[in-house]
């Protein structure tokens, strides 16, 4: 038990010793007080020129060392001591005075624009290398498109007016095929309608034409027919027998419907 305590103490001591081993110990040589055994000399006065500035004697305090001898105290003597530290402090101290900020002269500096394109002078163009291209031999699958080829009719227009503007040929009926009584009635109606003597009339034909809506009528003797131009009202109008005749005396044409439609 005591052995361990002792070792611990020894370790602590060694530790302290090593910790403080690096410390520099400055030996200060202290002036030892030397006691003087003989008696002190009497105070004397010494004439000096002028007044000397009072001098304060400074003495450093010395520690008592172990080897301090007890000697007789020497009388205090004034010595002029100068402390260089103060002077050095006063002279070596650097006083930095900050220069106050002041408005200086400002000048606007124009920045020249950068050239847009570097101009290269006297530069030889390198020989162009042929670019290598890769041709794929694989066939690409084509896209299929659908186009409807069907043909459709456009709008349908009604063109009856257009058709009515064209002349319609109407063939004459064969008069000699009519019943005699019917033809006699038609002849009588022709005389009444035209007011002409039946002997002065040459019948050109019996036609069945619309009872109304006939805008124009022309005789085509070569074909034995008439050409009529019709109006829209003729489409729905009933057909009625119509006799066209020529006056023998002057050759003018006369006509009339021989039946009431």
């Amino acid at each position: 038990m005591f052995g361990r305590v002792k070792e611990a103490m020894a370790d602590a001591a060694e530790t302290l010793r090593q910790a403080f081993a690096g410390l520099r110990v400055v030996e200060v040589a202290a002036e030892p007080f030397l006691p003087k055994a003989h008696g002190s000399s009497p105070l004397g006065t010494e004439a000096r020129v002028g007044l000397d500035p009072p001098v304060t004697a400074c003495r450093e305090m010395q520690r008592f060392g172990g080897d301090t001898e007890a000697r007789a105290l020497e009388p205090f003597q004034t010595r002029l001591c100068a402390e260089a530290g103060w002077a050095r402090w006063g002279t070596e101290a650097e006083v930095i005075r900050m220069t106050p900020l002041a408005g200086g002269e400002a000048a606007r500096v124009g920045v020249p624009p950068l050239p847009r394109r570097a101009q290269v002078l006297g530069r030889l163009e390198p020989v162009a290398r042929p670019g290598a291209r890769r041709l794929s031999a694989q066939l690409v699958q084509p896209g299929a498109r659908r186009l409807d080829p069907s043909l459709e009719a456009g709008g349908i227009e009604a063109g009856l007016d257009l058709m009515l503007s064209l002349a319609v040929p109407i063939r004459a009926e064969a008069i000699h095929n009519l019943p005699k009584g019917l033809w006699m009635r038609y002849s009588l109606q022709l005389v009444r309608g035209t007011g002409e003597n039946v002997r002065n009339l040459e019948v050109l034909g019996l036609f069945r034409i619309p009872s109304k809506g006939v805008a124009d009528l022309r005789h085509d003797p070569g074909q034995g027919r008439i050409l009529v131009r019709l109006e829209a009202s003729a489409v729905r109008a009933p057909r009625a027998p119509f006799i066209l005749a020529r006056r023998k005396d002057d050759g003018s044409l006369v006509s009339c419907f021989v039946e009431d439609p």
């Binding site: 227009e157 009856l160 057909r239």
Partner: peptide
Amino acid sequence: IPLDFRYTE
């Protein structure tokens, strides 16, 4: 005598 006439565009 025409009764009707139609035509296509």
